[in-house]
Design a protein around this nucleic acid. Sequence first.
DNA 1: TAGCTTTTTTATCATTTGTTAAAAAATAAC
DNA 2: GTTATTTTTTAACAAATGATAAAAAAGCTA
Lengths: 187, 187
Amino acid sequence: MTATEIVQSIQPLPEKSLQKILDKLSEVAYPKGHHLIESNKIENDIYFIKKGMARAFCYTSDTEVTFWFGREGGVVLSFNSYIFGKTGYETIELLENAELYHIKASELKALYEEDIHIANWGRKLSEYELVKTEERLISRQFKSALERYEELIKGDPELLNRVSLGHIASYLGVTQVTLSRIRAEIR
Amino acid sequence: MTATEIVQSIQPLPEKSLQKILDKLSEVAYPKGHHLIESNKIENDIYFIKKGMARAFCYTSDTEVTFWFGREGGVVLSFNSYIFGKTGYETIELLENAELYHIKASELKALYEEDIHIANWGRKLSEYELVKTEERLISRQFKSALERYEELIKGDPELLNRVSLGHIASYLGVTQVTLSRIRAEIR
DNA sequence: TAGCTTTTTTATCATTTGTTAAAAAATAAC
DNA sequence: GTTATTTTTTAACAAATGATAAAAAAGCTA
């Protein structure tokens, strides 16, 4: 995906406003396993995924818990850093070699203050993330692991080829063994 | 809480911009049990809670699942309606007789287009809701029901006096029987 | 392809949570 | 204050999930 496509997919912008954002974007590439965002740090980096797959996870006392997958067109940032300038709790790791567009949060925020179209674009950005986050919360709260598994795969059938079942099990909130049992039932 | 206090708590606004919002707000009151938001409807209403307690829940095949509690200063709306103009899945019910400030989503959106301060205020509104929603998701995903119970009560100790344990159990994602067992363990 | 590593499945047993029903406690109505 | 009604706790049993370990399958590398 091109930078323009990703930016416009959030909210179409007038040419001048679009250009202001594009001017601040730079293209970067990192290998599989690289951490775009580190937990317990204040992160000023925002990425848009041009190509590749990522996951966000938290460390708990004895394991990691995956709670987000990102793919082409997705936005990578720490909400706590972006919104409050605080340290975040998530680590965001690349699951494939990836190409990304990068912008500094501080630069984006400066644009919010000077351009109403970009301010509303930023509003849309967080609104969409909000709806997606709420959907995940509600799905988690009143659907069975089986239902959530089917929903997840339906939403992105490629996921099975790009992400290990261990990560998917963690995302669904069950052990890998339980996910195997679920998959065995479907067959 | 006054309307000004609630509006400014999201993001301080210049006098003129603040006044534009206040001009659109009206004060309303409804009794305990009233539904502010109805599921499967497109809702154009946004409320700020002046006084009272509310919960959001979804109907499942055989029961209701509570997934949000709101109190003084909280914002009441259907994200799906507000953001996409679609029908929402949640019903929002008053748990006490309540006083609220009301505004139409369409009026607020018109202000977003004409006033950059209000556009950024709207951005902050959804950003805060986003962080709160993500916190709930993460809390749900890697904390035990016991930990979440203690966290919830710590965050709002009054909750125990204002909300039935059945609703709290539903919010935590366990049955009321399990919540009773949890509470018995703490003692 | 053979051999090595990682991922996924299967099996067994222990633990947790759910279900149902009844008792106890707290609230509300008269 | 007494009686209903609702809410909360407790008990007993069933069902689902977790933990551990081993087997099978899939992916990598030379």
